[in-house]
Design a protein around this nucleic acid. Structure first.
Lengths: 231, 231
DNA sequence: TGTACATCAGTGAACGCGCGTTCACTGATGTAC
DNA sequence: TGTACATCAGTGAACGCGCGTTCACTGATGTAC
């Protein structure tokens, strides 16, 4: 039987701390995240936070991991929306659309994991890597499926050294050259979607009157035209 | 005759303050920029800075403007490297290459103007706009020249409302639809180069083993293939 | 040339503030006898 | 059922720190007479 909640113990305080932290980040960015401000928002004392996070950096790490998990969920959900083998194009497009939608829904989460690094904070890679790899894996998998369906154009891409890839691919037994190809296309696609999305969420395109949604749809089409063999 | 320098007056202190500020930013980012740290680095007292900048934000604004000026110089210099009318393709490529090279040489300047906004700092647009417009103008001009040379593909781009463009184009008498086309292509090109460059300077591509230089050259080629009519 | 004065880029002390973190504590709860 | 005790999520006070900014000041310089 689960231990009943004590009256001095605030229920879900750990989650509340993270919620308040996101709230602070939304207001003034991750670098001015303050444990005392969080405590004030929750009407608790600042040292109480130390029952849940050993220090400020650990809280930031928890936020980073949560952001990757949320982003990864959104990516895999979108991908699984078209599970049939012959729906690989739809899968690709849905995953791409979800990328931007998640970023727009959670712009500060997006910037925390994909934007300018938080100064003074060095993320502990061994803690973050699984969530990071899983989140980027959806796109890589879709591209691998395009390749296996014979729909990926194989032409003049710069091939990267996938040895340092760190396990993006679940199927690590794949032959090396194919892995490199899929991997390189994934980086190209990522850089393009990130280009538009990062400019959009930091507010640098709208002042120029850009319709970001149309721009993004154009880029997805351009990516398909460039990398995918039409049916 | 110029007033001679007094011995209590430190020569070029205003420039030294900005240099020290860039040094601090390189070490720990713009949000932890501290007037007292700058003063310590220069062996002066902190209030001395107030003889040159009314407050901390004014210093940041000066840095932002300097970054845009330096970036703009690099862009226009690259563009002017191939001044002949029939060298418009070389001009485009040179400007694109210079974009990345400037960003790699001055990654913190790049991130200050194109990265995640500094939390709590709202740049005064009326001060920054001229330097910003001039810096982005080089790319826009090259694309306008491509258009005037009949080398720009006119097909299915999403056209933006260039009315809010704010004077990117020096030749404002240009017909509206052409302006929109040039403008839209500029945004597409910008988002692509920014995509790679921002991931590269924040260190998010190299851990995946990407050869950023090859990736970037591929993207410039892809841009030419997509938007420019071969000679 | 000498003297009185204005200028103004610098100084050190101080203000009030917020921060992360530590520490000994308290007091409600659960548990063993 | 009653009592003594262990647990542990919370507390308030305090530590040492750095920050932006203000203020009255100083002292070298340039200048007017």
């Amino acid at each position: 039987m689960a231990r009943p909640v004590k009256s001095t113990q605030i229920p879900n305080l750990k989650e509340s701390i993270k919620d308040a932290a996101w709230h602070q980040i939304t207001l003034s960015g991750p670098s001015s995240l303050s444990l005392r401000k969080i405590a004030r928002e929750l009407h608790i004392s600042a040292p109480a936070i130390y029952n849940y996070f050993p220090d400020r950096d650990a809280l930031v790490t928890a936020l980073v991991i949560d952001a990757y998990l949320s982003f990864g969920d959104s990516q895999h959900t979108a991908k699984n929306h078209f599970p049939e083998e012959d729906q690989v194009l739809e899968r690709f497009r849905e995953t791409g659309i979800a990328y931007r939608e998640w970023a727009i829904r959670y712009p500060h989460r997006y910037l925390l994991i994909f934007g300018t690094p938080v100064p003074g904070y060095i993320p502990p890679m061994h803690e973050i890597l699984p969530a990071m790899v899983r989140s980027m894996g959806a796109l890589a998998e879709v591209i691998a499926e395009l390749y296996r369906a014979g729909r990926l154009k194989v032409q003049g891409f710069p091939l990267f050294d996938a040895g340092t890839c760190g396990g993006i691919f679940q199927d690590a037994a794949e032959p090396k050259q194919e892995e490199q190809l899929v991997y390189s296309v994934a980086m190209l696609v990522w850089s393009r979607v990130h280009g538009i999305v990062s400019l959009e969420v930091t507010g640098k395109l709208p002042p120029f009157g850009a319709d970001c949604s149309a721009l993004y749809r154009y880029e997805l089409d351009a990516i398909l035209r460039e990398f995918v063999i039409a049916a």
